[in-house]
């Protein structure tokens, strides 16, 4: 178990203790909610793990780096940015996927573009966003998010 995992689990346990002292009914409600979300996310977790395993097992690193590595340039970053915007997986699960391609030849810029568009932009939820907030705000938010995601990605590529 690494340090991050210990810290996260520590925070969860501390939070639970405080919650139980403050209001045990609400604490139990939180636990139930956590259990439900966990079960809900579980199939997706396995699908992502399988995707990673197949990706690393069957696609050689030089192929990954050809598409989204240092030398793929602007095109590769834009493509992976679009993939991130279209994908509809929980943000939490985008990080293991991102780390697997980073370790196997993808550039920092590409990985940053992927996680940033994936979290910020929701093409699947766009109709709902338009319905609740209007076309103007929803389209502007998603459109500009894509541009800033690409900018953030390039700055990260330069610094790291």
């Amino acid at each position: 178990m690494n340090a991050t995992a210990i810290i996260i689990n520590g925070i969860a346990i501390a939070g639970l203790l405080i919650a139980f002292i403050k209001d045990w009914k609400k604490a139990i409600q939180s636990l139930k909610m956590a259990g439900k979300s966990f079960i809900k996310i579980l199939p997706m977790v396995f699908i992502i793990i399988i995707t990673i395993a197949l990706l690393l097992g069957f696609v050689p690193p030089d192929q990954i780096s050809r598409f989204v590595g240092e030398q793929s340039g602007m095109g590769g970053v834009l493509i992976i940015g679009i993939v991130g915007a279209l994908m509809h997986i929980p943000a939490l699960l985008s990080f293991p996927l991102a780390s697997s391609i980073l370790e196997n030849g993808a550039s920092i810029t590409a990985v940053a573009a992927f996680v940033t568009t994936l979290t910020m932009i929701g093409m699947i939820t766009l109709p709902l966003e338009i319905k609740e907030l209007g076309k103007k705000i929803a389209l502007l938010r998603n459109g500009i998010s894509f541009i800033i995601a690409i900018i953030i990605a390039f700055i990260m590529g330069i610094i790291l």
């Binding site: 178990m1 991050t4 995992a5 996260i8 689990n9 925070i11 969860a12 346990i13 939070g15 639970l16 919650a19 403050k22 209001d23 609400k26 604490a27 409600q29 939180s30 636990l31 139930k32 909610m33 956590a34 259990g35 979300s37 966990f38 996310i41 977790v45 793990i49 399988i50 990673i52 395993a53 197949l54 690393l56 097992g57 939490l92 293991p96 697997s100």
Partner: peptide, 30 residues
């Protein structure tokens, strides 16, 4: 190779996901 990667990523995720869910549940309720 595939089983090894699966195992590795499964462990890395399973040691944090329940805690993450609990933290989210606490905030959502409180």
């Amino acid at each position: 190779a595939v089983t090894l990667t699966t195992q590795e990523y499964f462990i890395e995720m399973i040691i944090i996901l329940p805690a993450v869910m609990i933290i989210m549940g606490l905030f959502a309720v409180f």
